[in-house]
């Protein structure tokens, strides 16, 4: 079972990102569950979402304590939250940033999701859309297939720019 924890801020689409990843994994023929932790958070506050991907049915409902991978949709969350907490040894960190920080012991994949969204003017209610480009980045990292990522996006959003930003993020993500 591969477990992912997503850090974002309320309103940035972290919960939807988790759903999209599960949906893409599902298209790949795998089992997946996605769930947010709803605390007392409101718009702008740090929030956490979880994704589990497995080839077997998933019976676990409790939160992910030792993720295989961490996704940070808003790097400023790192000022107040230890996003590496419980991350497995050698577990990858995917960060939405133009300036990748060095993190000892973990491969860091940096991609400027915000910049990619802004370049397409893909902004809803003042927030650049991050959950569709992040799917492109994850496809590049091999977590889901690119076809399934694009299928999940097409099923969820009608705006074709979502596929465009996913493709751009796919190209710009460094392995």
């Amino acid at each position: 079972m591969f477990e992912i924890r997503i850090h974002s801020r309320g309103g940035q689409g972290g919960v939807t990102a988790a759903k999209l990843i599960a949906q893409a994994a599902f298209h790949d023929g795998r089992c997946a569950t996605a769930f947010p932790f709803y605390g007392a958070e409101r718009r702008g506050a740090p929030v956490v979402s979880f994704v589990r991907i497995s080839d077997q049915p998933i019976k676990v409902y409790s939160q992910i304590r030792n993720p295989d991978m961490v996704i940070v949709l808003d790097a400023s969350v790192m000022d107040s939250t230890d996003v590496l907490a419980g991350l497995k040894e050698g577990g990858a960190v995917l960060i939405n940033t133009a300036q990748p920080p060095a993190i000892e012991g973990h491969p860091v994949h940096a991609v400027d999701l915000t910049g990619i969204a802004l370049a397409q003017n893909l902004v809803v209610a003042g927030s650049p859309i991050l959950n569709t480009p992040v799917l492109g980045a994850l496809a590049r990292l091999g977590l889901v297939s690119k076809e399934s990522a694009l299928a999940a996006i097409a099923e969820t959003f009608s705006d074709p720019r979502n596929a465009t930003v996913a493709n751009t993020a796919y190209e710009e993500t460094k392995l």
Partner: peptide
């Protein structure tokens, strides 16, 4: 059905 644990989880 359990609040959030099931009401808000995405599964097949």
């Amino acid at each position: 059905l359990d609040g959030f644990a099931l009401s808000h989880i995405t599964q097949s």
